[in-house]
Structure formats: C-alpha cells, structure tokens
Simulated scan of single mutants.
Amino acid sequence: MSTNRDVAEGLIDAATGHAIVATDDDGVVVVFSRGAELLLGYPRDEVLGSKVDRIFDGDVPTADLDTDAPAPRERTLRGRDGVPVPAQVVVTRTPGVEGGPPGHLFVATDMIERRRAEQLQDELIGQLGHDLRSPLTSVLGYAQLLGAEPLTEEQHRYVNAIERNGRRLLHLINELQAGNQ
C-alpha cells in the first residue's frame, strides 16, 4: 500500500523537467529529484546530506523568501562538471519532511534551451532586418528620383504611395530590431 510519502516521491521524480531540491533549515539536502540529477549531473546519493550551496554559483537564494508569493528568479546553478547552468529558480519555505524541522524547497527550470532560442531569434531578426533593409533602401531611392522628374498628378500619387509605404516598412524593421535588443 502506498503512503503519502511514496506518492509525493513519485510525483517529485516524475517531474524530470525540473530540478526539485528540499533542504532542512541548516541547508542540508534532504530531497534531490531525478530532474535535479538530469539537470546538474550529480547522483542523488552524492548530494543527499550535503549542503545545498554546492549546487549554486554564488549565494543560495533564500533571500527570495521576503514575499508571500515567491517569484521565479534567474540564478546560476553549478553542474557536477563545474559548468554553470542558467536556471529559473523558485524558493519556498517548507514545514519539514516527515515532521522534521522546516526548511526550503528549490524548484529550478533549465534556461539553456530558452537562451538558445532567444539567440536564434536575435540572429534571425538581425539577418531579416539586413535582408529587407537593403532592397527597401534601393526602392526608396528610386522613388525619390522619380519624384524629382516631371510626372503627371496620378504618377506623383503612385510615387508618393511607394515612398510612404516604403518608409512605413523601414520604420517597422527598425522597431522590430530595436524591440529585439
């Protein structure tokens, strides 16, 4: 028969997309999930009973507990191989495991894939802006040349429309690139 603890441990280990780490009030690790093993490369047995600061680059973020609604914060974790792991971490107080002393619960989500996607997006927008700006500048230049020639009133309207819409496109490209920085 499953106990509540068995169910809780099963849920924690099933959340492999997140590193879940619980500590006592002294910062000693009492729970280290399968997701934490996958993200950081430490085997569970190596981390249980040790101080949680071994998995954080810098201070352990217990200062994030100053509000009733914990918010995710970007932190750098340290993998077993010493490589920094960017993560979004939420820290909460826990009442304690099996009636033990209270502690902290850390839930970390890997940010590596998000950062890669953001980098690809930046590169795409930069390239797209460059590829669009060159021919658009040429179109606008020719529209200005045409506007200087003797044209009928209808032809001037066409040239003005080309120039107006070209400037609008150029403005949109500039906004896209500025919003991406």
Rank of each mutant, 00 (worst) to 15 (best):
G179Y: 00
D57P: 04
A87F: 11
G27I: 02
E9F: 07
A19R: 12
R80F: 10
G126M: 03
S2V: 08
D59F: 06
G10H: 12
E123R: 11
V83G: 09
L105S: 03
L11D: 07
H104E: 02
L38V: 12
L77N: 10
Y158P: 01
D59Q: 13
S33N: 15
Q177C: 01
N165T: 05
A69Y: 03
I12N: 06
V29I: 12
G126Y: 04
H156D: 00
D26H: 11
D81F: 05
P95H: 06
L120Q: 07
V29A: 01
R54G: 06
A14N: 12
L170H: 06
E123Y: 02
A69D: 08
P84I: 06
H171Y: 01
K51S: 12
L65W: 00
E46V: 03
R75V: 03
A15Y: 09
D6A: 11
P102G: 06
P84T: 02
P61N: 08
V21K: 04
T16R: 15
L48N: 07
A143E: 06
E163N: 07
G100Q: 03
D25Y: 00
R80H: 14
H104T: 02
R34C: 14
R75L: 02
S138R: 12
A22T: 08
G10Y: 09
I55D: 02
R75C: 09
V89H: 10
I12D: 09
E153A: 11
V31A: 05
A14G: 10
V83L: 11
N160R: 05
D24Q: 01
S138G: 14
G100T: 01
E154C: 03
Q119S: 11
R116D: 13
Y42I: 00
D66G: 03
H104C: 02
Q144L: 12
E149Q: 08
E118I: 06
G103R: 08
E98L: 12
A143H: 04
G100M: 00
G147Q: 04
I12R: 09
T67R: 07
T109R: 13
L140Y: 05
R34A: 15
A148K: 08
R133Q: 15
T76H: 13
P61K: 09
L105A: 05
Q181C: 01
D81S: 11
L151S: 07
N4P: 01
A178S: 07
A148G: 08
D45W: 01
D68G: 05
R116L: 15
A108I: 03
L11W: 13
V28R: 01
G129Q: 04
E118P: 07
D57K: 14
R78V: 14
H18G: 04
L140C: 14
Q155T: 13
E74M: 13
R116K: 15
R54N: 03
L145R: 10
I162L: 15
G141T: 14
L124M: 07
P102W: 09
T76W: 13
P84A: 09
Q127R: 14
H104N: 03
A87Q: 11
G10N: 14
F56M: 10
R54A: 08
L169P: 00
D131S: 14
L38Q: 14
G41Q: 09
V47A: 02
D131E: 12
K51W: 04
R5W: 11
D68K: 00
N174W: 04
D110W: 06
D59I: 02
L136Q: 15
D13G: 09
I173P: 04
